[in-house]
Amino acid sequence: MKVTDNAKAYWRENIKYVIILLVIWFIVSYCAGILFKDELNQIKIGGFKLGFWFAQQGSMYVFVILIFIYVRMMNKLDEKYGYDK
């Protein structure tokens, strides 16, 4: 079996999605919750300092959302390339 152009294009788009989603994954957890938490802690929302909130709450919510976005995007991509059978 030769790798078809179809398969190659599908794989490229998949990789692009994965990279975008992982960048967001990194920003909410490692940037907002760890590296820049002191700066974000200057901002307060209700009783939460923002950096602390990202570390103990926000990042987890975003993780869940990221997976469901990925599920949706990939289901569409599978359809587009005819891999949904």
Partner: peptide, 26 residues
């Protein structure tokens, strides 16, 4: 653990959930 470690407890919260993103995507 979190109640004694305060902020530091976030390593477990993020660490034990963020891995699922890697699992699902990779």
């Amino acid at each position: 653990i979190i109640s004694f470690a305060g902020f530091d407890g976030a390593v477990y919260l993020m660490g034990w959930t963020g891995g699922y993103v890697l699992l699902a995507l990779l």
